[in-house]
Simulated scan of single mutants.
Amino acid sequence: MDWQLTVFVTVVEEQSFTRAAEKLHISQLTISQHIQTLEQRLDVRLLDRERRRVRLNPAARSYIDMQRKSSLCTTAWSACSNRPKRSRPAHCVSAPASHTENMYSRM
């Protein structure tokens, strides 16, 4: 998981930039910068910032779902690709990481 995603997930879990900064042992300004960079990279606002509270918006929910699915695919691909060809189950289907990266770049 890249650092911006780690920061984003921590902000979501803590529902606070301040608590996320404390948990990750970095400044609140750094948290804000990482979230801004992630939002710019995806060209979408992910969080609704309210007074002393942060909420996920629909775009953020979609992004998290996509990250979870990608993580599952990567894990499955690793499990299958690490096995000798003759011992792989018939249902092992894989896609290179570049395919999932291309999917994200189109968002």
Score class of each variant (00 low, 15 high):
residue 88 R to I: 01
residue 95 A to M: 09
residue 91 H to F: 11
residue 43 D to M: 07
residue 40 Q to I: 03
residue 9 V to P: 10
residue 6 T to A: 14
residue 86 R to H: 10
residue 21 A to H: 08
residue 81 S to H: 08
residue 102 N to T: 05
residue 15 Q to F: 13
residue 16 S to F: 06
residue 54 V to Q: 05
residue 53 R to F: 04
residue 94 S to D: 06
residue 47 L to R: 03
residue 65 D to R: 08
residue 34 H to A: 02
residue 42 L to Q: 06
residue 7 V to P: 02
residue 75 T to F: 08
residue 68 R to Q: 10
residue 107 M to V: 14
residue 84 P to Y: 07
residue 93 V to S: 05
residue 88 R to M: 03
residue 45 R to V: 14
residue 45 R to L: 10
residue 41 R to H: 05
residue 107 M to A: 07
residue 71 S to L: 14
residue 93 V to N: 07
residue 64 I to G: 04
residue 23 K to V: 01
residue 87 S to W: 04
residue 35 I to A: 02
residue 68 R to K: 11
residue 37 T to W: 04
residue 102 N to R: 12
residue 104 Y to I: 00
residue 13 E to K: 15
residue 71 S to E: 14
residue 67 Q to E: 07
residue 97 A to F: 07
residue 51 R to P: 00
residue 84 P to N: 07
residue 84 P to Q: 09
residue 46 L to I: 02
residue 71 S to G: 14
residue 76 A to S: 11
residue 52 R to S: 12
residue 26 I to G: 13
residue 65 D to M: 11
residue 81 S to Q: 13
residue 65 D to C: 12
residue 40 Q to F: 04
residue 73 C to Q: 09
residue 17 F to C: 02
residue 16 S to E: 10
residue 32 S to N: 07
residue 84 P to E: 10
residue 27 S to Q: 12
residue 57 N to Q: 05
residue 13 E to R: 15
residue 60 A to Y: 11
residue 4 Q to K: 15
residue 96 P to I: 00
residue 101 E to W: 03
residue 99 H to L: 08
residue 14 E to M: 15
residue 38 L to D: 00
residue 100 T to Q: 05
residue 94 S to F: 12
residue 94 S to T: 11
residue 56 L to E: 04
residue 104 Y to C: 01
residue 57 N to C: 10
residue 83 R to L: 15
residue 89 P to A: 06
residue 47 L to A: 00
residue 15 Q to L: 14
residue 72 L to V: 06
residue 26 I to N: 12
residue 27 S to W: 06
residue 34 H to F: 10
residue 64 I to L: 15
residue 22 E to C: 05
residue 99 H to Y: 10
